[in-house]
Simulated scan of single mutants.
Amino acid sequence: MPRRSEAGAPARPELADVFFALGDATRLRLVAILCAGGAFSITQLTAASDITRQAVTKHLQVLASAGLVQDLRVGRERLWQLDPTQIEEARRSLETITRQWEHALGKLKAFAEG
């Protein structure tokens, strides 16, 4: 049974990996590129960048471990594409937290004014 936070929303510890992966500027940039749609090679992902292919590969592995991207084999080439499922889960989690904060701030405001 999933743990629940004090406000009743399910705790999602696996989303910590998603937020960790998105917390790095390079990985966030890679996700933004992949959001354009399609599958991209390491060469395409390193174009117009000073980041090495090896560094991009390591960042993609972190993103893959968090479930944010997946790789495909096309012939000898390895292509990467976005898997938006975890991003959507993270977005829903942030919306829940936002509602909880708005509720708490509303109660604080009512208390302060009353």
Rank of each mutant, 00 (worst) to 15 (best):
C35G: 01
F40I: 02
G75M: 02
R99K: 12
Q54E: 08
I51Y: 10
I33N: 03
R4Q: 10
I97L: 03
G23P: 15
G75V: 02
P84C: 04
W80Y: 07
Q70L: 04
P84L: 01
A11S: 07
G8V: 11
C35P: 00
A25M: 11
A32P: 00
Q54N: 11
V74A: 08
D24Y: 15
G67E: 00
A32L: 09
Q54P: 04
L68I: 14
I97V: 07
E89Q: 13
Q70S: 05
A11K: 14
G38T: 03
R29W: 15
L28I: 01
L22C: 05
T52D: 02
A9D: 15
L105S: 11
D83V: 13
E14P: 14
A9Q: 15
S49R: 10
V31I: 14
R27Q: 05
A55C: 12
D71S: 13
G8R: 08
R73N: 06
G23K: 10
L108I: 03
F111L: 13
R73S: 05
G37V: 00
S41E: 00
L108N: 13
V18Y: 13
Q86N: 07
D83W: 02
R92A: 02
T85E: 03
L105C: 09
A36C: 03
S5L: 15
S65W: 14
R4L: 14
F111C: 06
F111E: 09
T43F: 04
T46S: 06
T26G: 09
L82E: 00
L68T: 05
A25I: 12
Q100V: 12
H59I: 04
G38C: 01
I42D: 02
V18D: 06
F111K: 11
A112C: 12
A66V: 03
R12Y: 07
L28W: 12
A21W: 11
T43P: 00
L72W: 01
A7F: 15
V69P: 04
R29F: 13
L30F: 11
C35Y: 02
E113D: 09
G23W: 15
A9P: 15
A110M: 11
A7W: 15
S93R: 10
A104F: 13
Q86G: 02
Q61P: 00
P2D: 05
L94M: 03
H59N: 12
L94F: 04
D71R: 09
P84V: 05
R99A: 05
F19D: 01
L72R: 00
V62H: 13
V31K: 06
A112W: 15
E102K: 09
L108M: 09
L79N: 03
G23Y: 15
A64T: 13
S41A: 06
F111R: 11
D71H: 12
A112D: 07
T43D: 03
A11M: 13
D50E: 08
V69L: 01
T85H: 06
Q70C: 10
E95H: 07
G38M: 00
V18K: 11
A66P: 09
D71W: 06
H103L: 06
R53S: 07
G106E: 06
F111T: 12
C35L: 08
